[in-house]
Simulated assay, not measured.
Amino acid sequence: MAEKKSTRRRGKALEEAVLSTVWTQLNKVGYEDLTISDIATLAGTNKNTLYRHWPTKAVMVISAFSKYGPEIKFELPDTGNLRDDLFGLFDYFQMALKTLTTGMLEGVLLDRLHDITLDKVTASLGEESEDNRFAKIMHQVLDHAADRGEVDLAHIGPSLISLPLILVASEILTKGALSDDAVSQFVDQILLPSYLNSAH
């Protein structure tokens, strides 16, 4: 009797198998020791297939976290002034970061920053940009500030739009956490003066 060949996973079945394996291994061995080879073996596929769907380990981990990680609800801050809106934005960052282990987060950031050159980080964030979601949030925060007469959007370029995210990434990579003191420094000494000066 001929041996029955196993059916290769495709589509949703493949995604489920891979991402559940990534999430299990991530929590078991951590980001640094998580390997594409192990994921392929445990998920019953091969590395080439994985790379066609997830070009880097960081992208794979982010996808797994989005599917299996705790839900982090975000409400756009609209407190009536830009300073408090920025603190509200960083509250979200801190809440999101607490759901990740430091090792995992540092690994993802290092991999992503390795892949993204400075010109891409500071480039115009268009509809096809992977950072577009954050750009939209910042535009909304600054739109509210502009409506209140706090800022002049014509003088706020892409580098200032992406600055909060860059500050967060830098702090995590150097300190391993985003402290309240760091947030206060970012808002009062860097971001608020930069944004408010645009109106003068």
Results as ranks from 00 to 15, higher is better:
residue 4 K to I: 14
residue 6 S to D: 04
residue 11 G to Q: 06
residue 14 L to D: 00
residue 19 L to V: 05
residue 19 L to W: 11
residue 20 S to W: 06
residue 24 T to G: 05
residue 26 L to M: 07
residue 27 N to P: 03
residue 30 G to Y: 03
residue 41 T to G: 00
residue 45 T to V: 03
residue 45 T to S: 06
residue 46 N to R: 08
residue 57 K to H: 07
residue 57 K to L: 09
residue 58 A to F: 08
residue 60 M to D: 13
residue 60 M to P: 10
residue 64 A to R: 11
residue 68 Y to T: 09
residue 68 Y to K: 07
residue 68 Y to W: 10
residue 70 P to Q: 06
residue 70 P to I: 01
residue 73 K to L: 14
residue 74 F to Y: 15
residue 76 L to F: 00
residue 77 P to L: 01
residue 77 P to Y: 01
residue 77 P to N: 01
residue 79 T to R: 08
residue 80 G to H: 02
residue 81 N to R: 07
residue 83 R to D: 04
residue 84 D to M: 08
residue 85 D to W: 04
residue 91 D to F: 03
residue 97 L to K: 03
residue 98 K to S: 13
residue 106 E to G: 00
residue 107 G to Q: 04
residue 107 G to C: 04
residue 109 L to V: 01
residue 117 T to A: 08
residue 119 D to I: 08
residue 124 S to M: 07
residue 129 S to W: 04
residue 129 S to C: 09
residue 132 N to F: 14
residue 134 F to A: 08
residue 134 F to Y: 11
residue 137 I to H: 04
residue 138 M to F: 09
residue 139 H to C: 02
residue 148 R to G: 06
residue 149 G to F: 11
residue 152 D to A: 11
residue 155 H to W: 06
residue 158 P to K: 01
residue 159 S to A: 07
residue 160 L to K: 07
residue 163 L to V: 00
residue 164 P to D: 05
residue 164 P to W: 05
residue 169 A to Y: 11
residue 174 T to I: 11
residue 176 G to D: 09
residue 177 A to T: 15
residue 187 V to Q: 10
residue 189 Q to G: 14
residue 194 S to R: 04
residue 197 N to A: 13
